[in-house]
């Protein structure tokens, strides 16, 4: 399968400490990849390197065959890399639909339009509606985000990324802080995403995350120590060592 995302020898240091120590990653089109590992393994830093929030000290990243590790987060987003944040990053004062329209506009040249009211741009409005349908938030479109429940905000966080029809979606702990019911709602959303979108997810909650994953990479101390299909990784003795200690 052709790779949508390829990383080779990625390194990131903060001061003296090496957070990501030579990671290589191959994500195929439409793949469902889970990255797990204990706290401090460097998962979020890796995600930030892939999204462009951080730039690597060494190594290269290719997205759809194009070298991107020096491109800004905004440029990568326009190429088709979408992401969510572990800490909610929403426009709290706006309504649900306004949030998603702003997101949809980010992928369109009309984001620079200084004249047309931003809710009158049909293309963005349609993309926003479609994204809200995918995360099952259409009935709440007119609600102010500040008045939404936490689980709804989590799904909105995902809708912002989906509104741009990304080719690759990076999910940073999408289940963090959710109740059991809310977790299953978010899982439903993720399981029903279009098959052609490749997804890389970082998650602590193994129960729900394993239902999603087809392939898993296990990280420890800035490296990938086990990688393979779901059953291979679960069966690998090294996985247990990482999670339970020797």
């Amino acid at each position: 399968m052709t790779a949508i995302l390829e990383a080779k020898g990625l390194e990131k240091r903060f001061g003296g400490s090496v957070i990501v120590a030579g990671i290589s990653l191959h994500v195929a089109e439409g793949e469902r990849r889970l990255i797990i590992g204990p706290n401090g393994a460097g998962k979020t830093t890796l995600l930030n390197l892939l999204s462009g929030d951080l730039s690597p000290d060494a190594g290269g990243i290719w997205f759809a065959g194009r070298r991107v590790e020096r491109l800004s987060a905004a440029r990568r987003a326009r190429l088709g890399v979408g992401r969510t944040f572990q800490v909610l990053t929403l426009f709290e004062g706006n309504t649900v639909i306004e949030n998603v329209v702003i997101a949809a506009l980010g992928a369109q040249a009309r984001r620079w339009d200084p004249f047309t009211p931003f809710r009158k741009i049909g293309q963005a409005e349609r993309a926003a509606m479609e994204a809200l349908r995918m995360v099952d938030l259409l009935p709440l479109a007119a609600k102010r985000v500040a008045d939404c429940a936490y689980g709804q905000k989590r799904r909105l966080e995902m809708a912002l990324a989906l509104a741009q029809a990304p080719k690759l979606l990076l999910l940073d702990e999408p289940f963090a802080g959710l109740s059991a019911t809310e977790r299953s709602q978010v899982l439903d959303v993720i399981l029903n995403l279009p098959g052609e979108v490749a997804i890389v997810m970082i998650e602590h909650d193994m129960d729900v995350a394993l239902k999603f994953a087809r392939n898993i990479s296990v990280m420890q101390a800035g490296r990938i120590v086990v990688e393979g299909s779901k059953s291979e990784v679960i069966a690998a003795p090294r996985t247990r060592e990482v999670y339970l200690g020797r």
């Binding site: 929030d53 800004s72 702003i102 506009l105 980010g106 984001r111 990324a161 741009q164």
Partner: peptide
């Protein structure tokens, strides 16, 4: 709208291609 959004969530705006 994007001027206000960039005031409130600059990092999110970068991630959205702005």
């Amino acid at each position: 709208a994007s001027i206000r959004a960039a005031r409130d969530q600059p990092r999110r705006m970068s991630a959205l291609g702005y």
